Measured scan of single mutants.
Amino acid sequence: MASQGTKRSYEQMETDGERQNATEIRASVGKMIDGIGRFYIQMCTELKLSDYEGRLIQNSLTIERMVLSAFDERRNKYLEEHPSAGKDPKKTGGPIYKRVDRKWMRELVLYDKEEIRRIWRQANNGDDATAGLTHMMIWHSNLNDTTYQRTRALVRTGMDPRMCSLMQGSTLPRRSGAAGAAVKGVGTMVMELIRMIKRGINDRNFWRGENGRKTRSAYERMCNILKGKFQTAAQRAMMDQVRESRNPGNAEIEDLIFLARSALILRGSVAHKSCLPACVYGPAVASGYDFEKEGYSLVGIDPFKLLQNSQVYSLIRPNENPAHKSQLVWMACNSAAFEDLRVLSFIRGTKVSPRGKLSTRGVQIASNENMDAMESSTLELRSRYWAIRTRSGGNTNQQRASAGQISVQPAFSVQRNLPFDKPTIMAAFTGNTEGRTSDMRAEIIRMMEGAKPEEMSFQGRGVFELSDERAANPIVPSFDMSNEGSYFFGDNAEEYDN
């Protein structure tokens, strides 16, 4: 993207840094990872977990959730003011799984939030270390993106479920800051804005008074975040219109849905970061690795190297396929839920299948599930090659597409044709070009129609051997075009429920 120079890199967003050079960025990201790792080690000690239990991804998720809940100030305040039966607002906890007599047992633990905050700050040299908290939120978000298709949420806001490739980060909490905003897809931002506008339509006082002023500035800020994701002048001009509207209503909703559809071809720039579970960072720190000293990046080879040398386990339900569970977590670790499966298959070195073909449910185990038949197995999170994460949407291309997802959002900077089903997408653009945004709409449609099938995206960008740390010898991959490109292809993934 041309304006790259004016933006802070995501590592800076990730670490609240002012302008830093590459070495400083690597050190501050490393410091953040160190903090998460030290916190995780301490929690495993508190909970008396064995090494194996500490490497269980379900335990990692519970521990991450506990610290996120302990620092969720708004919710904590709300819980104190609106006490609900049987919930102690000062405590947080969740299921911890232990191996007892050759069987997995679930144990519900409860801790004072104050105590968890103390352990977290102690692991982070006394700081609140917001960057580390956001990092864990993005890992949870990436896992949700890989596990669930947001059909219901899309339909509720009037969008087409086939636009799911635009929904990265749709389950990120509001408090995820600049680093969170960077990884949100165009569809996620559109959905947040539509929800806001709908509230304004239904509630006369939404934009009024002292609160209304705050609401208005939040609305304009979200519009600017979305505008910054678009790469064409016409899309940005249309966002200006939406932002400046005196009284946002149905016309703005129409414009936003139009823009979301246009992003299936004229893709937005959305950041991709490899955020790993805390149970990967903990053992690495415990083994003596100093992330701050060595430096770390979320968008280069580092996460690949770390996963190459990590042992992570997962509980497996009786009829689940461990290899499929591994694929789910591998995609989440690489922030690749909406990437082209052919690119992923090449990088991973084994075939990556669409969601609907995987015999696996989510990673988390519900409290009512029976533990008797639970097994555990090693997650295979290694890769054959590594590639640089991208934040450009890439230019655009036609490809055989599917009944489910009709476009992709690249996660890796790797040369390819970008699949999208042009006739299906263009069919949504018939007729409606009147109104105050008509010239911009016409211009956007013209650009979409001009998108050429034979153009290559990320020209000359390749993948790298894991021994090639400096990215000196790019390998331009070859793809098996007979395979499906979309992950949520004609899909039956479970729906995400809060």
Rank of each mutant, 00 (worst) to 15 (best):
Q415V: 15
R156C: 15
T62S: 14
R55M: 15
C44L: 08
M105T: 02
A129H: 00
S478M: 11
E494I: 05
T23I: 06
K7Q: 14
Q327K: 08
L344P: 14
S407N: 05
S345L: 02
R391H: 08
M136G: 15
D203I: 07
S141Q: 12
S359A: 00
Q42L: 06
G282H: 08
E495S: 00
S50R: 00
E495P: 09
K103S: 01
I41C: 00
L172H: 14
S262H: 13
S28F: 03
F304C: 09
R175C: 10
E252T: 11
W386N: 09
N202S: 07
E449H: 08
S69K: 01
P322Q: 04
G185D: 13
A442V: 09
K273W: 09
V352Y: 15
I225D: 06
M331T: 06
N21S: 02
N321C: 14
A286W: 09
N142I: 13
V29P: 09
F71K: 10
Q327W: 12
W139T: 10
S478V: 15
V155I: 12
R361G: 03
G93M: 08
V183K: 09
M456R: 15
V343M: 06
R204A: 02
S269G: 06
S50W: 02
L143Q: 13
T378G: 00
S165G: 00
I138N: 02
P423R: 15
R213H: 09
I444L: 14
Y385R: 00
V463D: 13
I63N: 04
I406P: 05
I63Y: 01
A234K: 08
P283D: 01
Y78R: 03
E220D: 04
T396D: 12
Q231M: 00
I475C: 01
G86P: 02
R99K: 14
L172T: 15
N124R: 04
D145K: 06
A179N: 08
G209C: 05
E339R: 08
P283W: 08
G485Q: 04
V476K: 12
G37N: 10
K305T: 03
A373M: 07
K198Q: 01
Y296R: 12
L266A: 07
R8N: 11
G54E: 14
L379V: 02
A401F: 04
Y219N: 05
S402T: 05
M43P: 09
R55S: 15
M331L: 03
N309D: 13
L466V: 05
S326Q: 11
Q399M: 04
S262I: 10
L276P: 13
G288Q: 10
Q405W: 10
V186T: 01
D340A: 01
E114F: 00
G180A: 13
M137W: 07
F230A: 10
R150W: 05
K422E: 06
I445Y: 07
W120K: 08
E369G: 09
L379G: 09
S392T: 03
E73N: 13
K305V: 05
G490Q: 11
I388S: 05
P161Y: 09
F420E: 13
L315V: 14
R261P: 08
S345P: 10
A131Y: 13
A387H: 11
S359Y: 05
M105A: 02
A442Y: 01
K273V: 09
Q231A: 01
R75E: 08
I36M: 12
Q398F: 02
F338R: 02
L418C: 15
R221N: 13
L328G: 09
M481E: 11
S69F: 06
E114A: 01
R152M: 09
A179F: 13
A153M: 07
M136R: 15
Y296S: 14
Y78F: 15
S217R: 06
R199K: 13
F346V: 04
W139N: 08
N309T: 00
A337T: 15
P95Q: 07
L256S: 06
C333E: 13
M13C: 04
R342H: 07
K227A: 11
S376L: 06
S353T: 08
N250C: 09
V363M: 08
V352E: 03
F420T: 01
E18R: 03
G132H: 11
L110V: 03
W120S: 04
F304P: 14
S310I: 02
G228M: 06
F420P: 03
Q399I: 15
R243H: 00
V352I: 15
T134Y: 04
L68W: 01
A401P: 02
R441Y: 05
R348C: 12
Q327C: 12
V363H: 09
R355Q: 10
G300V: 06
F258V: 08
T151L: 10
I444C: 03
T157H: 04
A471M: 10
T62V: 04
S335A: 00
S457I: 02
V155S: 00
R355L: 03
V270Y: 10
L466P: 01
T15H: 00
E73L: 15
Q364S: 15
K325N: 05
R246K: 00
L143P: 06
F291W: 12
A260Q: 10
R121G: 05
E484N: 13
M191H: 02
E495F: 13
A403T: 01
S165A: 15
R317V: 07
Q58D: 07
L56G: 07
F39Y: 03
I197S: 03
D480H: 05
A387M: 11
S245Q: 05
P410C: 00
R236Q: 04
L306G: 02
Q235A: 04
K7G: 11
G126F: 05
T147A: 08
G295T: 07
E24D: 04
T232E: 05
Q235D: 09
